[in-house]
Structure formats: C-alpha cells, structure tokens
Design a protein around this nucleic acid. Structure first.
Lengths: 211, 211
DNA sequence: ACATGAGTCATACGTTCGTTTTAATCGAAC
DNA sequence: GTTCGATTAAAACGAACGTATGACTCATGT
C-alpha cells in the first residue's frame, strides 16, 4: 500500500483524537504530533482547527449517510410501504457498521459522531451537509407511512431516540472499559440488540393526548 | 428570600455555564463573572475547577437519584414484581422533572448531565457517587425480574438505552432551537413520549441468539 | 540551468487559561 | 477597641493554546 500523504495522516490522527478527547480537548499540536507532521500543516491543509473538524466529520459521515440512503432505496424498490423493523434496520444498521479501514474504527466512528454532536463548541455544530437532512427527511416520510396515527412531533421524538441509542451506547462502551467483557457489546451483537430495542420502541402505539 | 452567599452564587453560575458550553468550554473567569464574584473565590471555596464541577454535578444528581430511589421504594412496597411500564416511569420520570428552582432549569439539568457525561475530559467522568450505582443496580434487579429470559447483557444494553433517550433528547432540543416550536418537546409531553417509547423498547422480546 | 510552486519546517506572537500569591476587608469574640 | 479567623479583592504567574510568518526543500516544466 502506498504510504499516506500528510493530509490524510492528519485526518486520521484528528479523527482518533477528536473521538477520544473531544474537539476542545484535542490540541492542534497533539494532532500533528500523532500524525508525525508539522504544526503548521493543519493551517496549510485545512485552514483552521474548526475546518479540520469539519473535514473529519464529513469523511466519517459520508459513507454512513450513503448506506442509509441506499438501504432505503432498496427497501422502497421492493415495496412502497416498508415495515417499521425494516426501516429501523436500514437506518440504524449503518451506524453500527465497521468502517472498511480497521477493526476498532467502528466504535471509534460512533464515538466521534456523538462526541462532536454533543460538543457545545460552536464550531462542532455546523458541519452537517444537505445529504444528512435529505436522508433524514426521507426516513421520516417512510416512518410516517408505516406508523399512521402517530403525531409528527412524536415521530420526530422517536427518530431522535434512534440516534440516541445507537450513539450513546458506543460512548458508554468507550468510557467504561469493563475489564470483564470488553468486546461483548461491540460489533454484531449490539447491532441486533439495538434493532430489537428500537423496532419495539418505534412500533409503540401513539401516546394518548393528555387530559 | 435571603440573598445567596458567594458559594451558591458560583454554584448556580457554574451549573448554567457548564450546561451551556461544557466543562472545557467554560472558564473559571466566566463563572465568577456571571456569579458576580471574584476569580479567586473558586479556588477558595472549591479548590479547583474540577472540584467545582464535581460539586455542581452532585447538587444536580442528588435529587434525581433520590427520586428514582423513592419511586422504586414505592413500587416495591405495593408489589414484589412491578411492571415494566412502572419501572420505566419511576426510573426515567425524575430525569424529566423540573427542578424546584426555576422554569427552564429542567431542560438545563438534563443538558448538564449529558454534557458532563459525554465530556471526554478526565475530570468530568469520575464524579458519580455510590448512590447512583446502588440505584442503578436496584433497578437492574427489578427489570430482570420483570423481564425473565432476557440475557443480563442485553438488559444492560437496554438500560443504557433509557438513559440515552432521556438525555440526548434534551441535547437536541438545546442545540437546535427550532423557531417554529421551541417548547413543544419540552416538559410534560416529552416525558410521556419518552415513557411510551422506552416502555415498548424495554418490553421487547429478547433478541434471538445469532446462528 | 533555473524559475516555479506546492509542501514542509522551525519559530514566534498574542491570547486565554487555571492557579497562586499578597494585601485588604469584615464580623464577632474578648 | 483590639485581635483574629474567615472571605474577598486585585494582580501576577507560567503554561498551553490557535494561528501566522518566513525560510527551506525539492520535484517539475521549460
């Protein structure tokens, strides 16, 4: 394999460190040190630390969004009204998938997403592209068809729940490395548990209006 | 009412700012400025920024943990085997309750919890006391009785899901102030939606072992 | 041969951070 | 009325941060 250029080495290092320590907890110096690059390389290749974060986020999010979109396409090609379980699997599945690169990068990816999303820093919040919104809206429409009678706002609440479960799970795994069973919840098992959990949750009857 | 002393004024300001900007994003100076106190007061009253965070976290978490514990006590006094829905409500409910102080402090509280929990900073991770663990284990046992046949690890996964949904919901509300309906998901409605969502999720049949 | 441009490098700048230090202030006990 | 412990005030410290700058390297095109 060809040795990676400085730009991707920085990207890799930044992804690792942002995921582990957060945006604010990661200094540009730490990134360039881990990447074996010079401090000024970040400014040269990305402009600023915030733009580096955006580049990392884009690289991580892109294949996930693409897989979500393709999964929905496949579903809709088969039937006009997919079942809730199918939609959940198509939407949440890619969030559990390993990246093609390494073995541990799957957990790292989800960790990165939630770390970024929950980071209160201003720069960490405005990196989503139009693709993410498009996919989200398409799934929203599909879920709305599969769950008639559910108020749009409760549906929105539930879709947030999907993301919450998939993301926060990984954070906990990352934060509390239980020495007994480190990889039990990682990988395929967590994926299936999550789909069970979320399918049941999404399929719940609408909450009755209060009073 | 008596005007609060410097210590509680700092505690209040820190709670507000930690919730809004995170631990790393909040400077000690910002806290003391908002509190109308002197910079050195933090060092004097709390020792360090990290210990200030711990004090804030304790103050926020304590009543929630107490309410969770009391809720379970009430349930167990009535019946030896509470239903899943009752357990979910007793466990997740307090996370949605408003604090006695103000109107908006409810969302701020949950926001604080998840901000702290998801903060990768070392100081932000080791503030939980033994009470939290005790309550968690008691609920774990109660859920295990209510959900026979569910593997312990899948049950653990699901309990993480409860926390994920309640916490991340608040983050999203905080992060993306939708101009159309700012307070729709806040308060009582989100609480009932969450309980619907989580009760269905917890009650799902166990995931079948793969292969 | 040599000018060009992208890439890399060491270094410095200005700012902000958490913490510490020293002096001033206040209320109550004697 | 003085003394003393408890707080607050103001200033300063050293370290770490993001960023900008200018020189250097070197393959490439002519």
């Amino acid at each position: 394999m060809a040795l990676p250029d400085t730009r991707t080495k920085i990207l890799d290092a930044a992804e690792h460190l942002f995921a582990e320590r957060g945006y604010r907890g990661t200094s540009v110096r730490a990134v360039t040190d881990l990447a074996g690059a010079n401090l000024a390389a970040v400014g040269y290749h990305f402009g600023s630390k915030a733009e580096l974060l955006a580049a990392v986020a884009r690289r991580v999010t892109e294949p996930i969004t693409a897989a979500q979109s393709a999964g929905l396409d496949e579903l809709l090609a088969r039937t006009a009204d997919p079942q809730v379980a199918e939609l959940v699997e198509a939407f949440a599945g890619p969030l559990f998938d390993e990246m093609p690169a390494g073995s541990e990068s799957g957990a790292r990816t989800s960790r990165l997403i939630v770390t970024i999303l929950s980071d209160p820093a201003e720069e960490a919040r405005s990196w989503t592209g139009p693709d993410e919104d498009t996919v989200r809206e398409r799934y929203l429409a599909a879920f709305a068809r599969a769950l008639p009678g559910l108020a749009p706002q409760e549906l929105l609440f539930r879709m947030r729940g999907i993301f919450a479960v998939t993301a926060v799970d990984r954070v906990e795994v990352y934060h509390r490395p239980s020495p007994a069973c480190p990889t039990v919840t990682a990988g395929e098992e967590a994926r299936r548990w999550a789909i069970t959990f979320l399918t049941a949750a999404m399929s719940a009857p609408p909450t009755r209006a209060h009073r």
